[in-house]
Design a protein around this nucleic acid. Structure first.
Length: 469
RNA sequence: GGCGACAUAGCCAAGUGGCUAAGGCGGGGGACUGCAAAUCCCCUAUUCCCCGGUUCGAGUCCGGGUGUCGCCUCCA
């Protein structure tokens, strides 16, 4: 099956062929660690976490790098405001990031490098750019010369003149051209700074990603991903710096997610509608959030709202119930020996949906379509589970497939916690006894009590079963 | 002004030239149940923003409109 990936650079879906299979080098722009990450950040992290997992699922060895931007204007400003140091601020929000990411089941990267730990590489690249006459020294800063880099604008498909005509940038006397950007900033009193051939200072925003990507992944990397607003100027500038320095293509596939809006509006500080992951995971089950984020194709815009979250909650619940129905059926003794017509039909359905899932994921990671295959399975197999006799190994193979899918999407709780306190088990037995006696008042009373304790009972024709809320 | 994305049922959302337009949520009806819960069955788009064109055949390709949104400035 052919792997298709949409490449922002060519604006086309391309066949995915890593440079050195089975190795895939993958860089994702990580957060500036001055605050909690928001749901828009989360979309990026979750989506590319799934891309990474699916590549691994298909046998690729993914080297996954996600940086932390720990030195930047916003970092300095926030540290000042809160009376702390830039370093302490970074440490704190890196920890918060790791908490939030793990709640959303975003796996840790192979490496999580920090900008401040890569000054040597940063200086090396800037030196290379100076040698290539792609950078100039101006009033203590080192600035990239966009006019000397012919391909500038290729990623955002803009011509230099057109970018200039629309530029709303402030007039900056130190730049020859408004599009030029700072590689190295001259030291200011009280700000963190590092030694360099151009005096003490700190790196510009874009250079750190070039440096860390090259440091860990080499001069040409397979995939570079991030949020949509990084296309210009951040990724455009990364290309200019990296290719200007090495003379080699920097990235083979550029991947960008779509925007996440809040109630159909852009999320922004000025609108006051920024939702942090930290507050959302207190309000919602993180798995519901993850399900929601994967319910649309990653490049399409996605709108976050209460009704949308309710759709996601109810939709995921259906799949989760399916898992629980399956788990409980596998524990019951109502086994069927041979396979009949029904089983053959379901076996074929399972094969078809396996194919369906892979095709969807191979086609530019279409998680929305892939989830459809799980719903199709849920419908048919739930129906089968209502039969008096069920074929054990058939159900096992469905469960194995769900485990596989969940290894990629991670939207379901596959293992149930079947340990329960003795007193609850006893209550369940008491209720069964009461039901036998047709003492429904007592039975319902016990059921309500258990519900208060977070245990939900379901009476099936094959016995009672329980789950936690 | 330049560049780009999107437009499919009440809502969300797949569909990248060809069997009856996935799937989910919501709604209606029914089955099962002591009641619930869970589950299943049936119904809920003769049609894909509009107008042309290409084609045996288009939601899908091309041209032109309309609308929504984004980027060009720190921003995921």
């Amino acid at each position: 099956m052919e792997f298709k990936v949409y490449n922002t650079l060519t604006r086309k879906k391309e066949s995915f062929k890593p440079l050195q299979p089975p190795r895939v080098t993958f860089y994702v722009c990580g957060p500036t660690v001055y605050d909690y990450v928001h749901i828009g950040n989360a979309r990026v992290f979750v989506v590319f976490d799934v891309v990474r997992r699916y590549l691994e699922h298909c046998g690729y060895e993914v080297v996954y790098v996600q940086n932390f931007t720990d030195i930047e204007d916003k970092m300095i400003k926030r540290a000042e405001e809160t009376g702390t140091t830039v370093e302490e601020l970074a440490d704190r929000f890196i920890e918060e990031y790791l908490n939030d990411a793990s709640a959303l089941r975003v796996r840790e990267a192979t490496w999580h490098p920090r900008a401040t730990e890569h000054m040597k590489k940063i200086v090396e690249i800037i030196n290379g750019l100076m040698d290539a006459e792609l950078a100039y020294y101006s009033e203590g800063d080192v600035v990239f010369n966009t006019e000397n880099f012919a391909r500038y604008g290729a990623l955002s498909q803009q011509k230099i003149e057109e970018l200039q005509s629309g530029a709303r940038v402030e007039v900056d006397e130190s730049k020859n051209n408004p599009l030029d950007f700072v590689l190295w900033k001259k030291e200011k009193p009280g700000e963190p700074s590092w030694d360099s051939p151009w005096g003490r200072g700190r790196p510009g925003w874009h250079i750190e990603c070039s440096a860390m990507a090259m440091q860990y992944l080499g001069e040409t990397i397979d995939i570079h991903a991030g949020g949509p607003d990084l296309i210009f100027p951040h990724h455009e500038n990364e290309i200019a710096q990296s290719e200007g320095c090495t003379g080699k293509p920097f990235v083979r596939y550029w991947m960008h997610s779509g925007y996440l809006n809040i109630n159909a509006e852009k999320m922004s500080k000025s609108l006051g509608n920024v939702l942090t992951v930290r507050e959302l995971i207190q309000k919602f089950n993180p798995l519901d959030l993850r399900f929601f984020l994967l319910s649309a194709h990653y490049r399409n815009p996605l709108n976050f709202s209460e009704p949308q979250m309710n759709h996601a909650i109810n939709g995921r619940k259906r799949l989760q119930n399916f898992v629980e129905n399956l788990n409980s059926a596998l524990k019951q003794a109502r086994k069927k020996e041979g396979r009949g017509e029904e089983e053959e039909k379901l076996q074929k359905l399972l094969e078809r949906e396996k194919q369906h899932f892979s095709e969807a994921m191979h086609d530019d990671f279409n998680t929305a379509e892939a989830m459809g295959s799980l719903f199709n399975l849920a419908k048919e197999f739930n129906n089968y589970l209502n039969q008096p006799e069920i074929h054990y190994s058939l159900l096992q193979s469905v469960r194995e497939f769900l485990l596989e899918c969940n290894g990629v999407l991670d939207i379901l709780e596959m293992e149930e916690d079947d340990t329960v306190e003795e007193e609850i088990e006893q209550a369940i037995r008491q209720r069964e006894e009461a039901r036998k006696q047709k003492d429904f008042a007592t039975a319902d009373c016990i059921r309500d009590e258990l519900k208060e304790k977070g245990i939900i009972l379901e009476d099936t024709p094959y016995g009672v079963r329980w789950k936690r809320t």
